[in-house]
């Protein structure tokens, strides 16, 4: 086909939106926690002493870290979704939850005697953590990938990974309400491992489905 003919075809289709429904990012941001909650409530639910636990710093810190990860990863995702948007400085903000976690780990190491470190890190919910975060995050990741597909990410694999990270952050906010292991040592060991599953899935799926 001649380029001229193609242009005429495209002009004729100017009024149509061929991409289907393009969800706005604010809607995606609202829907993500709802999807995570839909998996979390029936399957796990918050721990029985939730209200009392809120009084402890270690418990609250989990929400700060997970929440920061969800927000910064999502902001990076939004920048990656459209061509020529600066995203690197937003990606740097993902270091913020990592820094909070690292500081919490240092404090824990200072406060807790060394013979308890291993026990605290191993915790008693490691396996649940490794399965719950990917399970709660899976529908969120699917939502993020769907939203990205309707945009135009020029780095499919990276966008998919960041989608996985955002899904992991969202899932971790909910899972943290269930888990009784509040030590930063546990959080620093198992939460990133569980997140890695979603990041890898996001990268793998993203590099396929986010091409356009």
């Amino acid at each position: 086909m001649q380029t001229r003919e193609l242009i005429e075809d495209l002009v004729a289709g100017a009024g149509r939106q061929d991409q289907g429904f393009v969800p706005p990012f604010w809607a995606v941001a609202c829907l993500a926690p709802l999807l995570a909650a839909a998996v979390f409530w029936p399957a796990l639910g918050p721990r029985p002493d939730f209200a009392a636990a809120l009084q402890t710093v270690r418990f609250d810190l989990k929400f700060v870290q997970a929440g920061l990860l969800a927000v910064t990863a999502f902001a990076t995702l939004v920048a990656l979704a459209r061509p020529a948007q600066p995203w690197r400085h937003r990606a740097l903000t993902i270091l913020l939850p990592a820094l909070v976690l690292a500081s919490a780990v240092l404090m824990e190491l200072a406060l807790v005697p060394p013979e308890l470190w291993a026990t605290r890190a191993a915790g008693s919910n490691a396996l649940i953590c490794l399965t719950a975060i990917p399970s709660i995050g899976a529908p969120v990741l699917a939502l993020f990938l769907f939203a990205l597909r309707r945009q135009a990410p020029t780095r499919p694999m990276l966008s998919g990974s960041v989608a996985g990270l955002g899904a992991a952050g969202t899932a971790a906010v909910f899972y943290a309400a269930h888990c009784t292991d509040d030590s930063p040592l546990f959080v620093a060991l198992w939460y990133p491992l569980a997140s890695l599953i979603l990041v890898a899935a996001g990268a793998l799926i993203g590099s396929r489905v986010l091409r356009w």
Partner: peptide, 27 residues
């Protein structure tokens, strides 16, 4: 033609007020 088609299909990812050029070049 591939670029034209992509520009057409993804034209909703350009927002009024932004310069078109960097967007177009990225595509």
């Amino acid at each position: 033609q591939e670029i034209l088609l992509a520009v057409h299909n993804k034209r909703h990812t350009w927002r009024a007020g932004e310069p078109v050029a960097p967007w177009l070049f990225a595509i």
